[in-house]
């Protein structure tokens, strides 16, 4: 390190957004930077964006937690009181935890149009990927060995889609908070689709996924099993959207009811 670098021990706060998002500041510097965030709307927006990026690095490390840990945590929860939401002074929270995460600071005046446009595109992609990951873990948690084997095969297919250079994510959410997420690649003509918040289908019914095109008849991509992601291959790249319908057990040759949800595929590189 050169002398020049050692001299300005107090770095320009704006340049610290990325190290802060990576938790790469020393304690004192972290505290100073968080104080700066209280007064800098631009930095707060930037930190939130970079922190979302950093979190992407976390998802890739997921690993099954030791089984005994579950019992210990759940037992502890039964006897641990919760903290109230708003009664605590903001400052106390800010010194403990990153304000962009905890919602302690900064002031609400930064909730402007500019921030919305800054966040929407990749927040959407992030949410979609989160849905897929969460669904995989739900399956793992409940899985028998047989199911885990099937899941492993499916993971390989999923990895194939993700390994494509043009893999993209998208998601949709309805008014009741139910979600559909897709990660798709036009070059390998594959997609991974998840549903969230729909619960079990009515007795004797299944949810079926369809590929829709402007000129083509809907094509079945398969039936959803529980919460597991559905992997679809051999997709027609001219397809414009996905749709999900509720069908009689075993599925149908063509949709027999109105879709419960639909998702356009343009943002993931289809429909051209």
């Amino acid at each position: 390190m050169s002398l020049f670098d050692r001299l300005p021990r107090r770095a320009d706060p704006h340049s610290l957004a990325a190290p802060y998002a990576l938790d790469a500041l020393e304690h004192a510097e972290r505290v100073r930077f968080e104080r700066h965030l209280d007064t800098c709307a631009r930095c707060t927006a930037e930190v939130r964006a970079l922190a979302e990026d950093a979190v992407r690095l976390a998802w890739s490390t997921a690993a099954p937690a030791p089984a005994a840990m579950r019992d210990r945590v759940l037992a502890a929860v039964r006897t641990t009181p919760q903290e109230p939401a708003a009664t605590e002074p903001a400052r106390a929270r800010a010194t403990q935890l990153p304000p962009h995460v905890w919602g302690a600071a900064p002031p609400p005046r930064t909730r402007g149009r500019r921030r919305a446009t800054l966040f929407v595109p990749f927040a959407t992609a992030t949410a979609a990927a989160a849905l897929v990951v969460a669904a995989l873990f739900a399956v793992q948690a409940n899985g028998t060995q047989e199911r885990l084997d099937a899941e492993r095969d499916r993971s390989r297919e999923i990895a194939h889609v993700l390994a494509a250079p043009d893999a993209r994510a998208s998601s949709g959410r309805d008014a009741r908070g139910r979600t559909i997420g897709v990660i798709a690649s036009a070059s390998v003509r594959g997609a991974v689709v998840t549903l969230g918040g729909y619960g079990d289908p009515p007795n004797g019914r299944v949810r079926q996924l369809w590929l829709m095109g402007a000129d083509a008849r809907p094509r079945s991509l398969g039936l959803f099993e529980g919460d597991a992601p559905l992997v679809a291959s051999g997709l027609d790249t001219a397809a414009t959207s996905l749709a999900v319908t509720v069908e009689p057990d075993g599925g149908s040759a063509r949709p027999t009811s109105r879709p419960i949800t639909q998702l356009a595929l343009k943002t993931v590189g289809f429909g051209e």
Partner: peptide, 22 residues
């Protein structure tokens, strides 16, 4: 468990919040 009340859905997803904390 203790601090769930501090989660603000308007500021990002729960999973991001949890992983940032972790």
């Amino acid at each position: 468990w203790r601090s769930a009340a501090r989660f603000d859905p308007g500021r990002g997803s729960a999973l991001s919040w949890v992983l940032t904390l972790a």
